[in-house]
Amino acid sequence: MAKNNAEIQTHFEKYEKLLGGEKNCEKKIIVLDEIKNNHSDTRLKSAKVEHPTIKMDMELLIESKVHDKRSFKFKLRAKDLTVEPFFRFDSDGVSHLNKIPLTPLNELKIDTPHFHKFDNEGRNIAYQTDSLKNPTTREILLNDVSLCMAHYCDESKTYYNSEYIEIKQTPTSELDLDTDSFNPLNGVDYE
């Protein structure tokens, strides 16, 4: 069962400050030249992030599927606050159910792409910005990981010396694969 994040609930004021303050990332360009442990189909890279007043180890984690360039995740994590990433973006994947009381059922489902943050009860809340709700801008963002990153920079207030962070999905040592729209049934034999 999905549990509320007790650490964020307890330290919610700190959480809001952490998210609301302009944070600085150590790198302007993040090259995804590592592979995630136990997930050989996913590239991964992390970079250190600093908050202007809250001194805490913090990192920005970028994940991207090797064969599906439109499938990536951005996460901010501060282990001293909570092990779970405290602000996340999912470009693809399953839809989220927001367990917000007193909200009509049809408003509780949030499709991807979406952001994730926490409310004062420690509930994991997914949401879409206007740019993600609009089919045209959504397509533009999903087709360019660095544009999407710029959107994440603004939503999470994380920059490199006040500039947008850029992502290189394919390291220079590897070929840039031209991938089709992701279809999980491709190449699978069904009886």
Partner: peptide, 25 residues
């Protein structure tokens, strides 16, 4: 609660109203 995504020309993803206790559809 129903929605969909095209997955290329030959497949459609159907996002159903059935959900899980991990809060996913």
């Amino acid at each position: 609660l129903w929605s969909f995504k095209y997955r290329g020309a030959e497949t459609i993803e159907i996002i159903t109203p059935y959900s899980t206790t991990s809060n996913k559809f």
